[in-house]
Amino acid sequence: MSTAPRPATLRHVARPPRPSRLSNALVFGWRAILKFRHVPEQLFDLVMTPIMFTLLFTFVFGGALAGSTGDYLQFFLPGILVQTVVFNAVYSGMGLSTDIGKGLFDRFRSLPIWPLAPFAGLMAGDVLRHLIAGGIILGIGLVLGYRPEAGLAGTAAAFALLVAIGFGTGWVFIVLGLVIRTPTTVMTLGFTVLFPLVFASNIMVDPATMPGWLRAFVEVNPVTLMTTAMRGLMAGHATLAEIGLALSAPVALTLALAPVTLWLYRRE
């Protein structure tokens, strides 16, 4: 009889007072932190690519592109932070796709909770990831000789912008995660879209030498706008207009895709 559930299971437990939306969202944020604790390997995926990019571009191309590796690093580092955050967003889309595939989201959907809370939690996890990955890249940059002219305040402002960029981009991959059932497809599709956006931008090189048609694209590429503002903030010469342009894509994505997310979550 020891294998049967003891009467304790059968104790009637009433529903506690309904929690707030914020409380729901925080619980999902806690889940993201727990996942970090249990699967620290994910951090490896997140930072290895940007670290390799930083080292390769700085030491292989840096001298040729900017005259010296030091000058190039000064130019490149704010851009690689943008790239890191944008690429990271792909992973949360993969995580979401996995959750749905395993039926976990069905449980969440059958609970009387704020429908956006699971996504708010994903976002909280993303922000955490962005800050950790960004911090590691910045740390390596500092070791290699990068110096943010705007000091601590400028760097903090740049990281705030970085989080906003990650938040906005995150919606794209949340929608993809909701629509696409296989996590690897989310990744492949994500990188197919992101690679041209990241490379046809001003992250790696000054677009001045590009052909006219490409430059026309690069100049309106949201990644370029973000990178310009990041550079400005970390160097201390960012204008409000630059910051506004950098934020336009994340804000537009949030406004457009949050309702789509909600609709997809409740559909069927």
């Binding site: 889940r31 727990l34 996942k35 249990h38 699967v39 959750d99 395993k102 039926g103 976990l104 069905d106 449980r107 059958s110």
Partner: peptide, 12 residues
């Protein structure tokens, strides 16, 4: 609701 597949977070 308990679905056909264990709806739990396997990492936790």
């Amino acid at each position: 609701m308990t679905g056909q597949f264990a709806s739990l977070d396997e990492d936790l």
